[in-house]
Amino acid sequence: MKNHAPTYLKHQFLIAMPHMADPNFAQTLTYIVEHTANGAMGLVINRPMELSLADILEQLRPEVVSAALCAHVPVYGGGPVMTDRGFVLHPSGMSFDATAQLEDGLALSTSADVLFSIADGRGPQRSLICLGYAGWEPGQLEAELADNAWLTCPYSAHILFETSSELRLDAAAKHLGVNLNLLTSQAGHS
C-alpha cells in the first residue's frame, strides 16, 4: 500500500455536520487559514456577535467620534481561541502592519490599523472581521474529518463577502450539492 501525503485543507471551508455536538462549532461555516502537519487554524464566518466595529473602536480609540459610522459593520465570533484578538479577511491589494497574503486574492490582517482604515472609509471595500479563532492540534482536524464531523467545501469569495451570514452555511452546502436538512443527526451510525 502506498503512503499518501496527507491532504491539507488550507483555503477551504469546513461545514459543521448537523450532529456536531461541540457548541463552539454547531452549525458553523469555518474558513481554514492554515493547515499543516503542525495543526490547523480557521475562522468561523457565520456567527455574528452582538458587537459592531464601532464597539471595538471605542475600546481601542475612544477619542474618535466617527465610530458611529461603522456601527453597522458586524463582528464575528471567529472561534474559542484568543477571543480578544482581531482577524480581518479582505481582498488582497491592501496591506497593513500585519497582513498575510492567502490564496485567490484573499488576505488576512491582524493589526488594528486595518480596523481604523475600514472605519475611516479608506480600508478594503469588502472585509470580514472576527474576534478569536479556531485551532486544532496536529492530527486533530484529520481525526474529526475521519469521524464525519465536517464536510469540506472549496473556498468561494461570493459566500465569504456577498452572502449574508445566516445564509453562508447553506450556501456552502449547496455549493457541494448537499442539503444539510436532509442529513440526520444519525449520519454515519447506520
Rank of each mutant, 00 (worst) to 15 (best):
L60I: 14
Q186T: 11
L176E: 05
S164R: 15
Y133L: 06
Q59E: 13
L176A: 03
A157T: 06
G93F: 08
I45A: 11
L160W: 01
A67N: 15
T152D: 14
L169F: 01
Y133G: 03
G77R: 12
G135E: 06
L14T: 03
V88P: 02
I56M: 08
L29F: 01
L131K: 08
H90W: 15
G39W: 10
I15N: 10
M94W: 07
E50H: 15
A37I: 10
G77C: 14
L14D: 01
G93L: 10
F87K: 09
F116L: 15
K2M: 11
S52F: 12
Q125F: 09
I118W: 00
M41Q: 13
L176C: 04
A54T: 04
S190T: 11
W150R: 06
M94S: 01
L14H: 00
F25K: 06
R85Y: 15
S111G: 08
D147Q: 08
A187D: 14
N148H: 07
L141A: 04
V65H: 15
C130R: 09
E142R: 02
L176I: 05
S52H: 12
P62Y: 11
L69W: 11
L151W: 06
P138R: 10
I159A: 03
N148P: 07
G135H: 02
D104F: 04
F161Q: 02
M49R: 05
L89Y: 02
T28K: 05
L102G: 06
S66I: 15
L108Y: 01
H35P: 01
L115F: 08
G39Q: 04
R85H: 12
V33H: 06
A171T: 02
Q140M: 07
G123H: 07
E142N: 05
I15Q: 13
A134G: 04
N148D: 05
L14P: 00
A100S: 12
G105S: 12
F116K: 09
K2C: 09
V73D: 05
P80M: 03
A100V: 14
L182W: 12
L108N: 00
I32S: 10
A149F: 10
M20N: 06
A119W: 12
P18G: 10
W136F: 05
M94A: 05
D147I: 04
E58S: 15
Q140R: 00
P62N: 14
Y31V: 00
A157M: 06
L115Q: 08
L169H: 04
C153V: 07
P6W: 08
L9S: 07
Q186W: 11
H90V: 13
I118M: 03
S156D: 09
G39T: 11
H158R: 13
Y31D: 06
P62R: 12
A16W: 00
A107C: 03
G42E: 00
Q12H: 07
F96M: 05
L151D: 01
A172L: 11
A71V: 12
E34P: 00
S185V: 10
R85A: 05
V81F: 09
A71L: 09
N46S: 13
M49T: 14
Q59F: 06
F96E: 02
A107N: 02
E103P: 08
G78F: 04
